[in-house]
Design a protein around this nucleic acid. Sequence first.
DNA 1: GAGATTTGACCCTC
DNA 2: GAGGGTCAAATCTC
Length: 368
Amino acid sequence: MDMCSAATWDPNLLVELLTAGEEQIRQLEANLAEQSSFEICKALAHEIESTFKKAISMAKLGESPVCSNAITATNITNPDSPRSTNGSPRSETSDRVFKDQERREMTKKRKTLPRWSNQVRVSSGAGAEAPLDDGYSWRKYGQKDILGAVYPRGYYRCTHRITKGCLATKQVQRSDMDPTIFDVIYRGEHTCFLEKPMAAAPAPASQQTTGIQQNQQQHVAGEHQQPQQQDNQLLLSFQTNLKVKTEGLNMEEHDQKSTSFSFPSTPIGSLQPRNNFFTSPARMDNYFIDSFSPAFLSPTTSESNYFSVSPCGKSNPSTAFSYHHTAESEFTEIISTVTSATNSPIVDIDFMLEPGEFDAFDPISFFP
DNA sequence: GAGATTTGACCCTC
DNA sequence: GAGGGTCAAATCTC
């Protein structure tokens, strides 16, 4: 939210900032009510603090010719600085000082943002630069060749960053080993949907991303207040179509070799906030992580059987998925986890299955 | 013309 | 100083 860095005194911007702050407080209250993780609340608190700091700075800009204390000092030392276009005596130097300060604050702020990652496999027909439609609107702001990596890393941020102060970003890196796999690192939660419901439409066919986004964020589900109606519609369609197949598993202890289940048709009105996760990739993934039992999440597998997600209904890939237990065949989305070297809330769990471990999976408790 | 992408430069961290 | 992340001007696309 670079409203102040715009270097203009605009009452409307100030109101926008304060309104955004008010909204962030509501968000924090909601998270507190849902007893969300400490990290989420902490990140929100940082956002609120930053927002109000900017509002205060902007307010000061209105009553004084500067936007921050640092700039005040600069202006004192440069009394003859040319005025900016809006009439305030901000110099080029003070602009730079202010931007530097803003940048430092943003850098500090980004460190506090939650981070998680996933891997997405696209079909071989997909373009060289996989769009990886995850339901959010991203804008590419950079690309960088990474040392030791064959493919460059793309940097994306939320399209609504300026208009709504959404700080969510993601990095997309194509795998060296398998060009059809993209490592996606998400950073920061989307806050843009608070004002505008996100487009949770399925990936366009041309993009041929053949799976839903899965992440491994440690946070609990239901941390945002998304439009209820949209949630319910998506959840309903998802529940109707989602099945888990366990073909190929050693199910001798069971009466059948292949089992499947569907979501119970839960009355929408009875849904708890936690259940409304399907409109947000992060939320859904949180739910998966939170819901699997430790035995189900076994990273100690010798035969890497990815728990994969693939659409089983081409006509509507967003609402029909089957979960296959396969060695390496037709999985379309690998759920894995990348561990952060820092203390960021990333869960270091590979999403793999051992045939025997699947016994611990209880669909009833898994999908309450 | 507005919004998105590209790309060289800059800043920060280790 | 190297490498990663971001900025911002130039360019492209619709």
